[in-house]
């Protein structure tokens, strides 16, 4: 196991983490500001990817497709917020879980109804195809570097939005005291719709970027949704900073564990067993991490008690 391979896997873990961040940033904002548990967040990831595939198919442009994913998912978010979600803010978590669980069924099947049962085609542009050498003989995929870059830009943008703009002040106020901010004359329902749209749009963008190197198909959002929940719980719910650190932590743990655990176990046992056992534990690793963190810090790394 060389240093180069290790570093490359570290980058892979980071890239995975960045994608998780795009998902979990919206999720944690929506929870922090509106107090809503949104299981249907993964559906926006899927909607974004399908919008992108549709536009890429029509225009042939990847960049337009990315834009479409962001806008398409945000529009879907606004519509769903106005029609359904806003009736759930005052309900308890149970109703929210059930309603958004039902929303997953509705949206997944609806998308399948429109686009059919087969996966769609979406590919990265030629300019990002292939790999480039970094330092120390490390060769790394251009597209994955692009993802990491976009992720950091968005993280920085979110940071500025929340600390430096008027909207950000309102969002922070909303997190602290919901009654107070509406008493001060802020149009709370508009604020909620905007926050929801931002969350949905980011999820859609993530779906398109990942759909381009994986596959665009119905049901693609749910596995990543569960991981995004793991992330925000580790980071502390409502905290963007927590979501960022949680994302990187989960991404790196998952990747490194999956790759190195089988090799590590080969020291103790025969090869075939080690491979099998290592992959088994590897797939459980992030849940073990989450349980450990919560047992030590019951409200996550950066959560308010």
């Amino acid at each position: 196991m060389t240093f180069i391979l290790f570093f490359e896997q570290l980058l892979n873990g980071m890239q995975f983490g960045i994608m998780l961040f795009l998902m979990s940033a919206g999720l944690t904002l929506i929870f922090g500001v509106m107090g809503l548990i949104n299981l249907a967040h993964g559906s926006f990831y899927m909607i974004g990817a399908f919008c992108a595939a549709l536009i890429a198919g029509l225009t042939g442009s990847f960049w337009l497709a990315l834009l479409a994913s962001l806008i398409g998912a945000a529009i879907a978010g606004v519509l769903i917020e106005i029609i359904i979600i806003r009736r759930l803010y005052r309900r308890d978590h149970l109703d929210q879980v059930l309603a958004t669980f039902a929303l997953i069924l509705l949206l997944s099947e609806g998308v399948r109804w429109i686009f059919g049962a087969f996966p769609l085609y979406l590919n990265i542009p030629n300019i990002l195809n292939g790999s480039i050498p970094l330092f120390f003989d490390i060769i790394y995929s251009k597209y994955r570097l692009f993802i990491i870059l976009i992720g950091f830009l968005i993280a920085a943008g979110l940071y500025l939005l929340i600390t430096k703009t008027r909207l950000g002040i309102r969002i922070r106020a909303g997190q602290n005291d919901r009654q107070m901010i509406s008493a001060l004359g802020v149009d709370i329902s508009k604020l909620y719709t905007i926050v929801f749209a931002i969350g949905a749009g980011l999820a859609g963008l993530a779906g398109a970027m990942i759909g381009a190197i994986q596959s665009v198909e119905v049901g693609m959002g749910e596995p990543i949704l569960i991981l995004a929940f793991v992330v925000i719980v580790i980071g502390g719910i409502g905290s963007i900073k927590g979501a960022f650190i949680g994302s990187i932590l989960v991404g790196v743990t998952d990747t490194i564990g999956r790759v190195f655990l089988p090799n590590f176990l080969k020291i103790f046992m025969e090869s075939a067993n080690a491979t099998s056992m290592g992959s088994s534990i590897g797939s459980m690793l992030i849940y073990i991490l989450m349980a450990l963190i919560l047992i030590m810090k019951p409200s996550g790394l950066f959560g308010k008690n």
Partner: peptide, 19 residues
């Protein structure tokens, strides 16, 4: 799990089931 509460409890029980 019972060391946590609220949403954290929801999620930690989910984590154990996923394991």
């Amino acid at each position: 799990s019972l060391r946590t509460s609220g949403v954290y409890f929801i999620m930690i029980t989910l984590a154990f089931a996923q394991m």
